[in-house]
Write a protein that binds this DNA or RNA. Sequence first.
DNA 1: TTTCGTATAGGGGAAAACCCCTATTTTTTT
DNA 2: AAAAAAATAGGGGTTTTCCCCTATACGAAA
Lengths: 211, 211
Amino acid sequence: MIDVLIADDHQLLIDGIKTTLDDVPDINIVAEANNGLQVLKILQSKKIDVIIMDINMPQMDGLDCTKAVCKKYPDTKVVALSQFDEKRFVKKMVKNGASGYLLKDSGKDEIVAAIRKINSGEKYFCERLSINIINRELSTLDSKSLFPQLTDREIEVLKLICKEFSSPEIADSLFISDKTVENHRANLIAKAGVKNTAGLVRWAVENDFVD
Amino acid sequence: MIDVLIADDHQLLIDGIKTTLDDVPDINIVAEANNGLQVLKILQSKKIDVIIMDINMPQMDGLDCTKAVCKKYPDTKVVALSQFDEKRFVKKMVKNGASGYLLKDSGKDEIVAAIRKINSGEKYFCERLSINIINRELSTLDSKSLFPQLTDREIEVLKLICKEFSSPEIADSLFISDKTVENHRANLIAKAGVKNTAGLVRWAVENDFVD
DNA sequence: TTTCGTATAGGGGAAAACCCCTATTTTTTT
DNA sequence: AAAAAAATAGGGGTTTTCCCCTATACGAAA
């Protein structure tokens, strides 16, 4: 039996999925939430196998919630549910730990297949993702190897570099030495596999570390 | 009477639009295509007023096709049709000469309004484009003034900067002095309205000067 | 014909980036 | 408790970027 939580701010959609999955014997909808905070609250008391997670939610969205869930409850799998088949969202969700991606107009078979696959530890990406090219990329690689693992501080520095801050300016705004910033910058350049700050910024923009 | 061509690789969507526009007296669907090459072929024999152009198509996509059409047939207007309301796509299509942008889930009224406006030489941008801010930018400005006018040489230098070339390296590969490259770099930074090379690269990526 | 824009190139100097290192403290993981 | 990873910071140097200028040559536009 797979215990599933549905998180979406549209109750209609939750009801729709519940109805759809009503007669599936091995899938059990045991909880629902309308935003990311509710998800975290439910996880404190209930053990959940798979979360069907909308990306756009108030208070705490699916991106941040997925990140939090995958960190605190690594056994709980997340499948993203969205109306957009946008490269950025897909990549971002996978980066945050999601095991799969479904579009909101997916059929019953697809949803059921996704839940089963993901519960068994596999990945599942909706066939109709416009960028099918990245399917293979994403399903073979996991969130750790997809991107070099940047530390929180490195991401912080990277974002400031992309906002045209110089090393001394970053040092001032983070209350650290400019030598430390230069170290972070060098590590970022190495991790991104680029040659200089220009390459780093391009890599950051193309891999959604900005905005 | 407005003669319209629909270009989309999903026949279902073409049929949908045809049905929708069936009873509009002044709009006539006179042709359809499933990719960009077919569009160019049709234009050789038929005079078209407005092309409803999908962005994602096999063989030749909407971006390249729009560029080709606007160059060869300046009287034929193009309205982009896409499921993505992504800044990048919108900007790219406008840059390539499109007169408007519609989302695929637009209503009949919106499609009809767009075709009429665009046929009369105006611009039309779907209200629900998530980045409504740029609506005013785009509808008042044309494709030439949308971006600061970079010279050919500047674009050449810019692309090399984005490819992680340093000024001396660029100088070597273009057979000019590194001082000249530095001048181009400074002019680029000024034209882009950014502070340093990091900002320039980000601006270049976001405005599709790379790749 | 004169002006304007573009491409070219230089001088000179300050700031930043880049590249080696080493090293300590703190946090996380095992 | 020990080991690993992350964050901190420094020394010392080279290269590049950045910011002032000036200046010439050329072609196109006014």
